[in-house]
Design a protein around this nucleic acid. Structure first.
Lengths: 202, 202, 202, 202
DNA sequence: GATGAATGAGTCTTCATTCAT
DNA sequence: TATGAATGAAGACTCATTCAT
């Protein structure tokens, strides 16, 4: 029984999670550069010094938030593939899941969308890779749909990029007082227009 | 003859333009918070103190850049309406103009897109208003198209928001090494799919 | 039988010795202020908290090292007096022993020489007293030599201070890449020149 | 007339000198690591930010102090060579000058002696080079003395190192309450004993 | 006794803004 | 008007010390 090591590992996870939760709130609210490590520590319910036990530096906090955010999103996405293998349904769910994610994890989504540019070096590289992976998943679904004769013969990579971009629409929601539509209206519009646009005419 | 006042006013414009040009480059390159006023002054070919003669504070520099950027974009947009009054053509041009703008004024576009959140108070309000105005222009074109029987009876406000959002796609291009499509491919895709999706079937 | 107390006392000594050995290495390498208590604990093979069971604070670690260093040096010095009572030979050995000490306990010597100024309060007082004691030993040897007619009638206190100072020469050796002489060359030079200089002409 | 550039240059020198003077006091008193940049700025009569206009970082302040200290010392040394070319007199003056320097510029001397180890990289290299230069000057004087038959055929490099070391004796004076001798006593002792020791017997 | 996670005071450094020239 | 030296508030990060387990 590696009881001791387990405990240490578990506490480590607890702390990283505290930091994640605190940081998400603060970063979504003030943005990376305007947020101070003190504020993040306070929001995490930890002392400043304690945060640095679990994180290399400020950028590492951002990385933690983005990785966790992406990981949660990927989790949701993976579940889609268990339910159906029809590319039309998969593509639809792919969009829905991301719109819902933006609503459910409003703060995480906001950080993921807005703070990429504050990532440098390996962190940035890793993030872009993950983002690209997401596009590639979408692309493979589209390619499958084309092969099976459901979708028109479009540039699947670009289509995937544009779908991903559209899925991010809701990420920004609430930033402007002029935004009014509900999540349902948005997903209905995208699904019934964008998605239908690439279906082959029957 | 307000000769003297004219001269003063004209120099003021020259200076503000110098600042705009310098700031655009620096802000696009390093982002608002990482850029220093010194760097901006250098890029503008002015002393730091001189910059402050023409600008209230750092945020005011950002505002200047965004206003100028938006104003250039609006200029381009207004020209569309002089050429045709067919809402189908107008909507198409509306999208094209924005994609082209993102390419032509890469740096301005980057700043406009990424730094909104660093605007506060009245500056932010003004920017969001202008952005909303843009959406409203698009919306009125769509409404006109619906009225004339060209477009389906869709939620025109939401449609306009989504078109605006899609137009911003190219703004982010080049940020990731995975981005590969050309401007032409992007506009073709959007026009032939998104735009066609809202046309009434003949 | 104070068995229990003995055991406690013995462990205490073991631990203090671990700390001494670890600290000497780290302090000689990085200097007092740049060395962290964590590094010292690591080098001692103890946990940080454990170190604080045997030591009041960081300065106390330095004190431990300096006291131990001086105590070892005094040990070596005392042996001289058992072997001869000729002040000429005693003075010679006094110098030799210190040069050799600097070579044998390079790290200890380095710490003793360089970190005096980081000692404060009682620790500093104690150290300076001990250093003075060393000078006084040398002085008494010189005084004895003068009384017996071997040495010239010089200011014995100052002479002792200068001999002590010369003995520290080798302490600094190796700090600069320009240092090249061997211990033997140094001791030969000091003995055959400085020492001979105070002998009465025969 | 490069009036403007001259003025700028002159102010720069004034400021660097203020920093030098403030830093010398503080560094001599508290040591490099215990002194804060705030204390140094205060002692210099400048704001903390202003100090950083004239200095790269904290270590750069130390470098400034050591360079200035060494430069003053070298100045004094150079004057010796103008007065006589007799190596016996030159060597004597070489020692005297350094002892006097330690008295006159007590604080500078203390910093130069004690803080070498806090110099890193190029700063350290430069300092050691300069120190070596000093030894080489002494050595050349000794070599000259040997060639002219005044001094015994000793290892001149080592002799020079030891003379330099002895000259530093007074640098440390005042650190311990047990130090009592005056500068005159010290120089008399060194000159009449150490120096005479290397003279050829007549 | 031993441990090492938690703490927060303390430090260096940057940079927007001001103002005397 | 133009300048850039001076300022000091603010912020990231370190590390000696404590204390619950």
């Amino acid at each position: 029984m590696a009881k001791r090591a387990d405990f240490v590992e578990s506490r480590r996870n607890t702390r990283r999670n505290q930091i994640f939760k605190g940081a998400v709130k603060v970063l979504a609210d003030k943005g990376y550069h305007s947020a101070t490590t003190q504020e993040i520590a306070d929001a995490a319910g930890l002392a400043k010094g304690t945060v640095y036990e679990y994180v290399k530096n400020k950028e590492d906090i951002l990385l933690l938030v983005m990785e966790e955010g992406l990981s949660m999103l990927k989790n949701d996405i993976n579940k889609i593939f268990e339910k159906t293998d029809d590319p039309r349904e998969r593509l639809k769910q792919l969009i829905l899941v991301q719109l819902k994610f933006a609503k459910k994890y409003k703060d995480s989504a906001k950080v993921v969308l807005h703070e990429v540019n504050n990532l440098t070096g390996d962190g940035r590289k890793m993030f872009l890779e993950q983002e690209n992976e997401l596009v590639e998943i979408t692309r493979s679904v589209i390619d499958d749909g084309i092969k099976r004769g459901y979708f028109k013969k479009i540039n699947s990579r670009l289509a995937a990029e544009l779908f991903e971009h559209a899925s991010k629409f809701y990420f920004d929601y609430g930033n402007s007082p002029y935004h009014k539509s509900t999540l349902n209206e948005i997903s209905d519009f995208i699904l019934s227009n964008y998605l239908r646009a690439i279906l082959v005419d029957e």
